[in-house]
Design a protein around this nucleic acid. Structure first.
Lengths: 337, 337
DNA sequence: ATCGCTTTTTGAAACCTTTCACTGACAGGA
DNA sequence: TCCTGTCAGTGAAAGGTTTCAAAAAGCGAT
């Protein structure tokens, strides 16, 4: 009801103390005698006092907030990363705001600008374009930034990522081990660093196994979604059977799930007619009707580490940028038995 | 590098104009002559000026931000609702912050407190406990709040929800139509309003069909996750076959996916041995190996509407609280053919 | 009473922006 | 020439909090 909320001044007046004392109750309660502290606190409750964070921040200079600008809030991989960040933020008594750039550079830029204006303590980001110059500018102006799940050529950021070349290698080695000699690699666009790294690992493993390059078939997709996975499945099905791969490595689980669905739906058995390996090991991978073999990334750990780095950068004056790389792990399930 | 970012004062000095002019460039560019405007803008760029949002907000009184406190960022249903909110916020040139309460009341309370201190323009929330008194207090102190996907007894909030009783009814009517005469209802805990409403609809439909109440079997779960769905499947499988239901209505899709997986994994066919209806129609429902029949909620629309309401409440002085209810819709797929 | 010490409280300055009443300048009309 | 009206730009005040030096109060010892 109250049209304007009470300020410290109102509280001070009502409690019969000075402004400074009210502020002390808020920020250094031990410096205030128990009696007055209690009185002030009671008045605050009565008046429904709510501290004005803008004013606090303006004066104190620092905020108690981290932000994670996520690439796609609809992809469980990123929400799991966010959960990891959240854990770490909780431990440090910071709040975490999530922003969704939904794969759009303009939205990402808008979020970055606002976060910088808010003077957040640090920004974690999985950028649409890892080389966007906007990131550099924000960082240079003093907001700590950690890039999550993308690597950066320049070393002027902390970076937390997973070894995608190794991940691609693991997937293809697994398929080769299972006896597959014609394999599809499904994913795209290759402008995404992730995708090209996983491709590179796949090719390296294939070559190491002494198999001819033309039997590793690239099936390019426009995005990494379930729908694109289905469409890739149709393209695979349309190939003449002697050239058709017996297995597919999808560069993420959404693609793999789409492919799986299309395959089963059109009567091919998995893994009998087509073995499938996904990437990310999202919860729905294990829960698919044919549980999906997938390359697991330590996504929770990814988030936790990124948060730790951004905290360090924001507190430690002579902080050195680090590039942390985690190791992926293949989880074999029924889709490649 | 600059240790403290430039302020309007610095810009004014460097451009040889007054503070007020700089502010005008920022907020009412048309009141400034093109020449000076351009000069000021150039200086801003050179100095790397970043407007201090705290100071702006402190003076201007209003913030340009909405927040959605989501119940579970890992559930695609909520991320889709968030996407709808985001759309509407975009249109209104507001930013959206997402907070994840992860089903924990303490986290929810912490987020609410911070958002109130930040003086956000409005809060959208799917609360852990729809009757939490904290919500009332925040609302009473003047922050517009819209409750999403939960109904509230008291009418002192705007509310956007879907008719869950009808949803439950649709699901069970569909199964009865398909000839099922012994059906399981899977979900819980029933303290969640959603769950009990869907149960109620299910029972009503069952009774309307003239079927005996004891043939609608409740399978209670502790949570609405994939894992709980699997465990429910095991319990169903353990029933003697003459008492075992031929169909299951799961109160959300995560449960349904878990049940589906367990059923197929243990050799039962879907829908042959067990027909399954889910709820929410998340993307993964259609993408399951046996595409899932599900009760679709207009989740995008839910978000959009909620955002519109909170905007109206924050701008229109004589705003009346509204309770908007959407109608769910059954999407029949292979899991109940 | 006075001194020296600690604990508690005070008051004013500072943080950065926006707002608004106001001044100057300048053009056109009478 | 004088008046009126527009357009650009100015400068001070205000917004709510924190900080910090300094004042006040309390207290035990002399």
């Amino acid at each position: 009801m109250s049209v304007r909320s009470a300020s410290v001044k109102d509280v001070a007046a009502a409690a019969g103390v000075s402004l400074g004392t009210v502020s002390n109750v808020l920020n250094r309660p031990s410096r205030v005698s128990p009696a007055t502290r209690e009185r002030v606190e009671r008045v605050m409750l009565e008046l429904g006092f709510v501290r004005n964070e803008s004013a606090r921040q303006l004066r104190a200079g620092k905020s108690r907030t981290l932000a994670y600008v996520m690439l796609d809030a609809g992809n469980p991989f990123f929400t799991d990363v966010a959960a990891g960040i959240d854990d770490a933020a909780d431990d440090a008594a910071l709040s975490l705001f999530l922003c969704n750039s939904a794969n759009r550079a303009d939205r990402e830029a808008a979020h970055l600008a606002l976060l910088e204006q808010q003077r957040v303590q640090g920004i974690l980001i999985t950028p649409v374009d890892a080389d966007a110059v906007a990131l550099d500018q924000v960082a240079r102006r003093g907001t700590p930034i950690v890039v999550v799940d993308r690597t950066r050529r320049l070393e002027d950021f902390c970076t937390v990522a997973v070894d995608d070349v190794l991940g691609g290698r693991l997937a293809v080695e697994h398929l080769v081990d299972r006896g597959h000699r014609r394999v599809a690699v499904v994913g795209g666009p290759t402008t995404i660093g992730q995708v090209s790294d996983r491709y590179a690992g796949a090719r390296a493993a294939w070559a190491d196994a002494g198999l001819p390059a033309e039997d590793l078939v690239v099936v390019a997709t426009d995005a990494m979604t379930v729908a694109e996975g289905r469409s890739a499945g149709e393209r695979l099905a349309g190939m003449p059977s002697r050239r058709r791969p017996t297995a597919a490595f999808c560069v993420n689980d959404l693609l793999a799930l789409g492919l799986l669905q299309q395959s089963i739906g059109s009567g091919r058995s998995v893994p009998g007619d087509l073995a499938i390996v996904g990437y990310d090991d999202i919860e729905f991978a294990a829960a698919a009707a044919v549980p999906l073999t997938s390359v697991r990334q330590p996504r929770h750990q990814l988030g936790r580490t990124a948060a730790a780095l951004v905290l360090e950068e924001s507190t430690d004056p002579d902080h050195e940028h680090q590039q942390v790389t985690f190791t992926p792990e293949l989880v074999a399930r029924a889709s490649t038995l």
